[in-house]
Simulated assay, not measured.
Amino acid sequence: MPVKFTVVPKKNPQDLLAPAKFYANAVGDGETDLDKLAKAISIQCTVTEADCYAVLVSLESNIITELEEGRIVKLGRLGNFQVGLSSEGKATADEVTSNAITNNRIRFRPGKRLRTFLKTVTYQKVS
């Protein structure tokens, strides 16, 4: 199944007078939540839907706890989660404090199967 995309115009923020260029933009085609994932997983194995849901919710909680401890969370074939930061540049190392941090994010590095999916995915333009 191809990933759908639309075309969107974007202005150059460094040159607002330049004409807009057009870019592909992936389209979300519906949503899947923990309930749906738990049900799908339970159909594929011998674990009940409620047990699958409980494990997924517990996984989320444990990932947060491990990230709070500064750990990289390695989920085997799925991939790794890690906290990433952006900060202001300072003249000396001593000047860099938590006040210099300007942004944070959770970085996800996909495992091999997910990376392979990205290399083999097909696309379909929609209007």
Rank of each mutant, 00 (worst) to 15 (best):
M1R: 10
M1K: 09
M1H: 03
P2M: 03
P2D: 05
P2F: 00
P2K: 04
P2T: 04
K4I: 01
K4F: 02
V7M: 12
V8A: 04
P9I: 08
K10P: 02
K10R: 15
N12F: 08
N12V: 13
N12W: 07
P13W: 05
P13D: 06
Q14P: 03
D15R: 10
D15V: 08
L16Y: 09
L17P: 01
A18L: 10
P19Y: 03
A20C: 11
A20Y: 04
K21Y: 05
F22A: 00
Y23C: 09
A24D: 06
N25D: 04
N25R: 12
V27A: 03
V27I: 09
D29R: 05
D29E: 07
D29F: 00
E31T: 15
T32F: 12
T32W: 12
T32I: 14
T32D: 05
D35M: 05
D35K: 09
K36W: 04
K36E: 14
L37G: 01
L37V: 10
L37E: 01
K39T: 11
I41C: 04
S42H: 03
S42P: 02
I43V: 15
Q44S: 14
T46E: 08
T46I: 11
V47G: 12
T48E: 03
E49Y: 07
A50P: 01
D51H: 13
C52Q: 00
Y53E: 11
Y53M: 15
A54S: 10
V55L: 09
V55W: 00
S58F: 06
S58P: 01
S58Y: 09
L59A: 14
E60D: 04
N62K: 06
N62A: 06
T65K: 13
E66G: 04
E68R: 05
R71Q: 11
V73D: 00
K74Y: 11
L75P: 00
L75M: 11
G76A: 00
R77A: 14
R77H: 14
L78D: 08
G79A: 07
N80K: 08
F81V: 02
Q82W: 02
V83M: 08
G84I: 12
S87Q: 08
E88S: 07
E88A: 10
G89T: 13
K90S: 13
A91S: 10
A91M: 08
T92E: 15
A93L: 15
D94V: 07
E95T: 06
E95K: 13
V96I: 14
A100V: 12
I101F: 13
I101C: 13
T102D: 05
N103L: 12
N103G: 15
N103S: 15
N104D: 09
R105V: 03
R105E: 07
I106H: 08
I106F: 11
R107W: 00
F108R: 01
F108N: 00
R109H: 12
R109Q: 14
G111H: 03
G111P: 01
K112T: 09
R113A: 10
L114D: 13
L114P: 00
L114W: 12
L114C: 13
L114V: 15
R115G: 02
T116S: 11
F117T: 05
F117Q: 06
L118H: 10
L118D: 06
K119C: 10
T120Y: 08
V121N: 02
Y123H: 02
Y123G: 00
Q124K: 14
K125I: 01
V126M: 08
V126S: 09
V126Q: 11
S127N: 15
